[in-house]
Write a protein that binds this DNA or RNA. Structure first.
Length: 831
RNA sequence: GCGGGCGUGGCGAAACUGGCAAACGCAUUGGACUUAAAAUCCAAUGUCCGCAAGGACUUCCGGGUUCGACUCCCGGCGCCCGCACCA
């Protein structure tokens, strides 16, 4: 540990206080300036911040401060995703009320964020558990109910036995709860749904229209939506007039290869097809077996496909063939129609099943020459397919669908993997769903003037299961909004992802009380120009927020189609090869780091060690290096305050220096301006931007130690001033406290962040000479410093005359000479 | 299986449109300063051969295009992430 560090412990709080007192980062709508809405995903108030937070919010802060200096009116707000299970679990374990726990955590974390010196407009802080916040989503819920975008149904849902609540499909990861990792089971439960499937096509379409989003996130969303085109048609049951099963297929062209059909075991149609008690027994036993399968078994490698043959047969409408019917575990009741036509020739799953059950296989696509595989899914010409023979697969698909439509047997059909968003949670710490159940009127939404339906504080949180609200009679019992009679309130609360689906709109006018947000403010600020957060929300929050924004648009509340113009998905913070976690013992505590080395150092290292989208490998010695760099700047500036203060042209620009050393140094200063600016603008490569500033600081030391001694004092002081002030401005967004302090030490009275971002002086960038590499047959054999404007002929002549080069050319025939101006010469030879 | 990404020194990484591979930092080594240490400053540091000047090799592997390939094309190997019996 070094002993001689700059006084970050006094300057960091000093500037945090100053920024707050001067309301430096508080903004209002200002149509005369371009706006920039910079947003990092708001945190859950878990208690303490971790290095992942530091990195996330440091990235956002660099961008926000940079945009300030570029003259933008920057909205950079902060708030709390404050509803959720951990608060309730803390209540169960420690007896503290979720509200108390949450607000205490917010207090603590707010102070931690302030210690990081992030440029938030704290006057816009929100917490989603505030009734003044969630009342608006209750209102929207009622509007969605009107339009059929919110609805209630009984359905088989994902149930987390540990969290004691339902989970949406997006919240189940490989069969486990996204939050607590428990194995998820199935339950039939009544619940509320948002009709996100109504927006499937639009959500998908916009995936191609958001170039500011990372490709991998868009791909994950596309896959999640899972659109597939095909046909749906009926297969009549043999000898049972009027009875048929409907199947969905993406390959209607393969219908002539259908050698059997399969129903999902759970399908209700199975019960109608069963002919006697013996068969019923077999079916029920199979159903029980399928239901017993654990998630583990279901995802096991090479899981054999199991099934039971029914006595019923069905008829292939394309060729009249009578074929067997099965129930099998590989057909899902939840997708398509829950029934398939099986074409083992062109579908590997059907092929596997056919092989193990001795079923025939008909090829309907001509295989390539040396085909050795099993089911064939490639291109080819149709065979064994009646009127489709000789067509390509796309042609045959169309013709098969036309054939079905003409006979009234089926239609073209699009299916999605996406399911409606189940938003009911059987838990306490969430926004109440504003409906009541009346014995006379049925389900009735709360009257809009009665909103918000406030979540009651005095509730017993036992953790015994079931919503705690159900036992709170003062909440549950309420008059019916329609008839005034005794009714019962809904006791499910909303998924917390509903709150995070619109908080970015609330930030535009967080204190507005005539609606969800002030339309004028939202019109000015939206959309979010740059959104920053972790990849874990690729299909959760980021899909829900896109959907909800479109709903609000269709309700006439906003004009934007998409909430986030650009997304930066930052990598994880890794240490010793693993994600930081208590159990691995590799956690670095931000508080400790800030105390020992300062917030600027913590920020600098997390921005320097890797580009933002990559995982960051934490390294304590690397952090020391970052601290060393800031000390180096500090020492230089402090020891040169007097000299720099004596320089003319206190505002940066200096007269073109007279000495070659001065010119060369000044060029480095201005080249650095261009490099740093380009690195920030192009892909947020803060790591290389910082590296460029480090190079400039190295050059500054070298200049001061050597050439600087021999030039006129006025020139030297002017160059030092320009260099130092450039460094402070370029580094400001990364390390705002130390740069702001040094800026003041140099005699400035206005904040560094009220300064304009520097621009390179084109005159300073001009070079007289340039170093050109000379290659012989692609290998570097020499280099020469020549006039920048030398013609290609001259460059070629000089290269051939070079002492280092000549021996390599001697005795060989020169084939040609390639001259790349200002870069290199390649002499191509033959023996 | 499908989709996306990646592969460069001891380590984190850099290289814009094909043009000096390894910038910057960490670590290591040497020197200066010091009674000494720390801090600081200066220097060296891809691998191999060589006392040296210098040379050969090197961006996962194998081919190709090109005067020239980390970068483009073809084939392979390996790793990471997401979805996964989605018909």
């Amino acid at each position: 540990m070094s002993t001689d560090r700059y006084p970050f412990r006094t300057i960091e709080p000093k500037w945090q206080r100053r920024w707050e007192e001067t309301r430096q980062f508080q903004v209002t709508e200002d149509p005369s300036r371009p706006k920039f809405y910079c947003l990092e995903m708001f945190p859950y108030p878990s208690g303490r911040i971790h290095m992942g937070h530091v990195r996330n919010y440091a990235i956002g802060d660099v961008l926000a401060r940079y945009k300030w200096m570029r003259g933008f009116n920057v909205l950079h707000p902060m708030g709390w995703d404050a509803f959720g299970l951990p608060a309730e679990n803390a209540a169960i374990e420690h007896g503290v009320h979720p509200a108390i726990w949450t607000y205490e955590n917010i207090e603590h974390m707010r102070s931690q964020f302030k210690k990081l010196g992030i440029s938030y407009d704290w006057s816009r802080e929100i917490a989603t558990c505030d009734p003044a916040y969630y009342r608006w989503e209750q209102l929207i819920f009622i509007r969605m109910l009107d339009r059929g975008l919110a609805y209630r149904k009984r359905s088989s849902v994902n149930w987390c036995p540990s969290c004691q609540t339902v989970l949406a499909n997006e919240q189940v990861e490989a069969g486990r709860c996204w939050r607590c990792d428990s194995e998820v089971t199935k339950r039939d439960i009544d619940g509320w749904y948002f009709k996100i499937t109504a927006y499937a096509d639009e959500l998908l379409e916009w995936c191609d229209r958001l170039p500011g989003w990372p490709e991998r996130v868009m791909t994950m969303q596309r896959n999640w939506i899972g659109r597939s085109e095909g046909a749906e048609f009926d297969l009549p049951v043999s000898g049972r007039p009027g009875l048929s099963l409907r199947v969905f297929t993406t390959r209607p062209d393969t219908a002539f290869g259908m050698t059997y059909a399969v129903l999902a075991p759970e399908s209700p149609l199975v019960d109608q097809l069963v002919t006697d008690d013996g068969e019923r027994d077999v079916v029920e036993r199979f159903r029980a077996e399928v239901a017993r399968q654990s998630e583990q078994e279901r995802v096991a490698e090479d899981r054999p496909k199991r099934g039971v043959r029914l006595s019923a047969h069905i008829v292939n409408p394309f060729n009249g063939a009578e074929i067997p019917l099965f129930i099998a575990d590989y057909v899902l009741v939840t997708y398509g129609t829950g029934a398939i036509m099986a074409v083992p020739g062109e579908d590997q799953r059907d092929w596997d099943f056919a092989k193990s059950h001795g079923l025939p296989i008909i090829e309907t696509v001509k295989r390539p020459e040396r085909w050795t595989g099993e089911a064939y899914t490639g291109d080819g010409i149709k065979i064994n397919s009646g009127f489709l023979d000789g067509l390509t697969i796309p042609e045959a698909k169309h013709k098969a669908i036309d054939w079905l439509v003409a006979r009234g047997l089926g239609t073209a059909k699009v299916n999605y993997r996406l399911r409606d968003w189940g938003i009911s949670r059987q838990r306490y710490w969430g926004a109440p769903i504003p409906v009541l159940y009346c014995p006379m009127c049925g389900m009735v939404p709360e009257r809009e003037e009665n909103l918000p339906v406030v979540l009651p504080r005095d509730v017993q949180i036992s953790g015994k299961g079931g919503s705690p609200l159900a036992d709170a009679s003062h909440f549950v019992n309420a008059p019916c909004p329609k008839c005034g009679g005794a009714a019962r309130r809904e006791t499910d609360t909303m998924d917390t992802f509903v709150e995070s689906s619109w908080y970015f709109l609330r930030y535009c006018s967080p204190h507005y009380d005539a609606g969800m947000f002030d339309p004028a403010a939202a019109e000015y600020w939206m959309s979010v120009d740059q959104y920053i957060g972790g990849i874990e929300h690729a299909v959760l929050h980021l899909l829900y927020a896109r959907f909800y924004t479109k709903v609000l648009r269709d309700l006439g509340l906003t004009k934007v189609d998409e909430p986030f113009t650009a997304l930066l998905s930052q990598g994880m913070v890794i240490k010793d090869g693993a994600k930081m976690s208590k159990s691995k013992g590799n956690v670095v505590d931000p508080d400790e780091l800030i105390h020992n080395l300062g917030a600027d150092t913590a920020r600098l290292f997390s921005l320097f060690a890797a580009p933002p989208e990559k995982d960051l490998d934490w390294n304590d010695q690397g952090v020391e290096g970052a601290s060393r760099f800031l000390n180096r700047i500090w020492r230089f500036v402090i020891s040169h305050v007097a000299e720099i203060g004596s320089a003319p042209g206190a505002r940066g620009r200096v007269e073109m220096p007279a000495t070659p050393e001065g010119k060369a140094f000044r060029r480095i200063v201005h080249e650095t301006i261009n490099r740093v600016t380009a690195d920030i603008d192009r892909d947020f490569h803060f790591n290389t931007a910082i590296a460029a500033i480090m190079e400039l600081v190295n050059a500054l030391y070298a200049f001061e130690a050597s050439a600087g001694e021999r030039m006129p004092a006025v020139e030297r002081a002017g160059l030092l001033r320009e260099a130092v002030e450039t460094i402070l401005r370029l580094l400001g967004p990364f390390c705002p406290h130390v740069t702001e302090e040094l800026w003041e030490q140099l005699g400035h009275t206005e904040s560094l962040f009220a300064q304009r971002w520097p621009g390179a002086d084109l005159g300073a960038l001009v070079r007289d000479e340039v170093t050109v590499v000379v290659q012989v047959d692609g290998k570097v054999r020499g280099r020469m410093t020549i006039d920048v404007n030398a013609s290609s002929d001259v460059v070629e002549r000089l290269a051939l005359a070079d002492d280092k080069v000549r021996p390599w050319v001697a005795g060989r025939r020169i084939e040609k000479v390639v001259v790349v101006p200002k870069r290199l010469v390649n002499i191509v030879t033959r023996p």
